[in-house]
């Protein structure tokens, strides 16, 4: 399946791009993270500490165990600091 992957804040800086399209067979968010981390060092570094990473599936907050079936857009970012 084709996924639009978005990165924000220091994840965007560490990985070096704001968005990309990924062709993947990953079943869960965790699978996709493992796949990306195996791809290149910069991904492995960005995803090294998952306690500092949040994920949204189609613009709703989710978690690493969530299934990617039917998802079109996935975003990775640090804990939010609004207000």
């Amino acid at each position: 399946m084709k996924l639009t992957v978005l990165y924000f804040a220091w994840l965007r800086e560490r990985i070096g791009l704001p968005r990309e399209t990924v062709e993947t067979d990953a079943v869960t968010v965790a699978d996709l993270i493992a796949e990306l981390s195996a791809r290149e060092e910069r991904y492995a570094l960005a995803f090294a500490d998952l306690k500092a990473v949040r994920v949204a599936l189609d613009q709703d907050l989710s978690d690493f165990d969530a299934a990617l079936d039917g998802v079109r857009e996935i975003a990775f970012f640090p804990p939010m600091t609004g207000g």
Binding site: F8, A9, A75, F77, P78, P79, M80, T81, G82, G83
Partner: peptide, 14 residues
């Protein structure tokens, strides 16, 4: 609203 938008709305301050 304040408590929630601090940590549940996707904003990041630099």
């Amino acid at each position: 609203l304040m408590d929630y938008l601090k940590s549940r709305a996707p904003f990041w301050k630099k």
